[in-house]
């Protein structure tokens, strides 16, 4: 097991790290909207997503993240990419507006199939990059505090925001602990001759059982102990409580929110009016 699990918080001190977690969550949502806005043509789509990619790369390198982490998460999507490509290849298209690439066993494959796949993959990569930046620059507990803040309006309709936030922060809090358990159990079973890397599918499944059963046992024991510890210290899920950490919204947060907001608004506007500078340019007009 690597100690660098995907998107784990890394305590550097950059501008992105110092931003209020609420700002970062809002910015993530705004970028997601911008990424998934449909554009009039392929050319426009790739232009907009290219701009977002530049922003993503800038943020990614600015928050001192490793390229390796990103590459690994992209590589882990290979099967999905292949599956998408196959689905798009066999999607029937309007022959009059599409561009034929080649014919495979009587099935007409259009260039649009590849473009559609590329667009989805690019969107997924962008999504992964922004999410990685969020989780790697924000302490998990700050994230839950921010989520709880966003949920406060729901208190009016009786939604137990505090309980929800507590559940979430406990779940997040225990991810590293469980990762440590995984590491420990894998080591113990490896020295009993289990091979998690090599072997047939069946022996791999058997190997996983030797990991999962102890992991569940550990986790149940631990959650039971935690519940007892909380209760013995008088935890009341409905009690009113003060906070140790306070979130603070600075001028830099305001600027970040305004900039991302403006950018998302621009992308939305462009999408809704179907603006496309390439339409004037003959060659790309039909794409």
């Amino acid at each position: 097991m690597t100690s660098f699990s995907m998107g784990r918080y890394i305590p550097y001190d950059t501008f992105v790290h110092r931003l209020d977690p609420r700002t970062k969550i809002l910015a993530l949502v705004l970028f997601m909207i911008a990424i998934f806005m449909g554009q009039a043509t392929y050319a426009m789509s790739f232009l907009v997503e290219g701009v977002i990619l530049v922003i993503a790369i800038a943020l990614y390198s600015y928050s001192r993240m490793k390229v390796k982490v990103l590459l690994r998460s992209i590589l882990s999507m290979w099967f999905m990419i292949l599956f998408l490509l196959i689905v798009y290849m066999f999607t029937p298209r309007d022959a009059s507006t599409s561009h034929l690439a080649f014919e495979l066993w009587g099935v007409k494959v259009y260039w649009e199939a590849f473009l559609d796949t590329a667009r989805i993959v690019l969107r997924l990569i962008l999504m992964v990059m922004f999410s990685l930046v969020l989780t790697a620059t924000t302490r998990p507990l700050d994230l839950t505090d921010a989520l709880e803040w966003y949920l406060t309006p729901f208190k009016l309709i009786g939604f137990p925001t505090h309980i929800f936030a507590m559940m979430l922060s406990l779940a997040l809090r225990f991810i590293p602990t469980i990762m440590d358990d995984v590491d420990r159990i894998m080591k113990a079973q490896t020295s009993r001759g289990v091979d998690y890397q090599k072997g047939s599918l069946i022996s791999k499944i058997k190997a996983m059982v030797s990991l999962i059963v102890p992991l569940f046992v550990q986790s149940f024991v631990r959650s039971d102990e935690l519940a007892n510890a909380m209760e013995s210290r008088g935890y009341d899920p409905n009690g009113k409580r003060t906070r140790y950490r306070k979130l603070s919204f600075h001028l830099s947060d305001l600027i970040a929110v305004l900039l991302t907001g403006a950018f998302a608004a621009l992308v939305m506007y462009v999408s809704i009016v179907g603006f496309d500078p390439f339409l004037a340019w003959g060659g790309l007009a039909t794409w």
Binding site: D181, R184, I185, K187, A188, Q189, T190, S191, R192, G193, D195, V209, S210, V213, P214, V217, Q218
Partner: peptide, 21 residues
């Protein structure tokens, strides 16, 4: 490394968590 792991038996701290059958 399998041969090495047979040769060197490692009992971890709190080894009870390795039980699963």
């Amino acid at each position: 490394l399998k041969g090495l792991r047979k040769k060197v038996g490692l009992v971890f701290q709190f080894p009870e968590y390795q039980l699963f059958l």
